[in-house]
């Protein structure tokens, strides 16, 4: 057990060093690289905390998609770097910030050290109900059975964020193509990479989605992988993003939450409550919701990375 603790301590030190450097480094581009590295280390921590579902999400979101999003922004904003450096706050501000941050850290640390023992847990309650959902993975069961409302609202949050991003388009680019376009030679190495990687990646994404019912995995993780593969193909110059005014795109984007809501409210008739599933039908209904949410999430996550429309729609 001491060996495992040594690994934990090393991991902690590594993470703290990486976070401090990400905050302190002058160059924004370097900071983004630090942040992605930090996300990768967090994935290892989630595994150490016996939360493989969270580790999968962190690996997909924290490192991959957020990294691509931030790097695109950092590249575009590079010309503002030197102007921003002149705005460095005064010594007083920095001291006050350091004191405040240290106080927050100390308060949280005291809370951590005084957590109740034995720890309260809902694990037995979740385990007791697991059989009735027909789902093997307790996290998926929580996401789609006991706390389905959260998951629905989460999908809607992703959608609303996308609407927010789109609404930041210039008037003339309204409903047009997102900025993301490739500089890559369509016969170059990147195209080759995308041609080989994307099909295998799509299989992995669907696999992660599919095993989510019984093992760690699920729609968010699978959708993130699929979104990343789509962006990869676009980045390699093999495909284009559609203009955001396309009808099929908008239909697919709202279809997932809509199916979720319909099934949820059908519970009022078929079972006793909203988001209750009739006996014996829990698993197929959960599966139906997951499958309907999948395209919504893939499209929404990829388009969030692509950003606001920048070019005019076709006339």
């Amino acid at each position: 057990m001491t060996l495992a603790l040594a690994v934990d301590i090393g991991l902690t030190l590594l993470i703290l060093a990486m976070a401090a450097w990400t905050i302190a480094v002058r160059d924004t581009f370097a900071s983004v690289i630090g942040f992605v590295t930090y996300g990768l280390l967090l994935t290892l921590v989630w595994v150490r905390l016996a939360a493989p579902d969270v580790a999968l999400t962190e690996a997909a979101m924290g490192g991959g998609l957020t990294g691509a999003l931030l790097i695109g922004a950092a590249a575009r904003l590079r010309s503002t770097e030197s102007a921003s450096r002149t705005e460095r706050p005064s010594v007083l501000t920095r001291t006050l910030a350091a004191v405040l941050s240290a106080a927050v850290t100390a308060a949280l640390a005291i809370c951590v050290l005084n957590l109740p023992d034995p720890a309260p847990t809902l694990a037995p309650a979740a385990a007791a109900q697991l059989g009735s959902t027909g789902v093997g993975n307790p996290v998926t069961a929580v996401l789609l059975a006991y706390r389905a409302m959260d998951t629905l609202l989460e999908a809607i949050v992703v959608l609303l964020a996308l609407v927010g991003v789109w609404s930041l388009a210039h008037d003339r680019a309204w409903g047009g193509y997102p900025q993301l376009r490739s500089h890559a030679d369509p016969d170059g190495i990147l195209a080759y990479f995308a041609r080989v990687m994307a099909p295998v990646g799509i299989i992995v994404g669907i696999y992660i989605f599919w095993i989510g019912a019984d093992f760690p995995g699920g729609k968010f993780q699978g959708a993130t992988i699929l979104a990343a593969m789509w962006l990869l193909v676009i980045g390699a110059g093999l495909a284009h993003l559609p203009p955001v005014s396309q009808t099929w795109l908008r239909v697919l984007l709202v279809a997932g939450p809509l199916v979720f809501i319909v099934i949820g409210f059908a519970g009022l008739v078929t079972a006793e409550a909203v988001f209750a599933y009739p006996n014996g039908y829990a698993k197929p209904l959960i599966l139906a919701i997951e499958i309907a949410l999948m395209p919504t999430l893939v499209l929404a996550l990829a388009l969030l990375v692509a950003g606001a429309p920048q070019r005019m729609p076709p006339q």
Partner: peptide, 24 residues
């Protein structure tokens, strides 16, 4: 499950690397 995490990590790390080189 860790093998699946590693698989996801391998995929997304490759994706992020490509995004970085393009950004650079």
């Amino acid at each position: 499950a860790v093998i699946d995490v590693a698989l996801t990590l391998a995929l997304l790390a490759a994706f992020a690397s490509v995004a970085f080189v393009q950004g650079i």
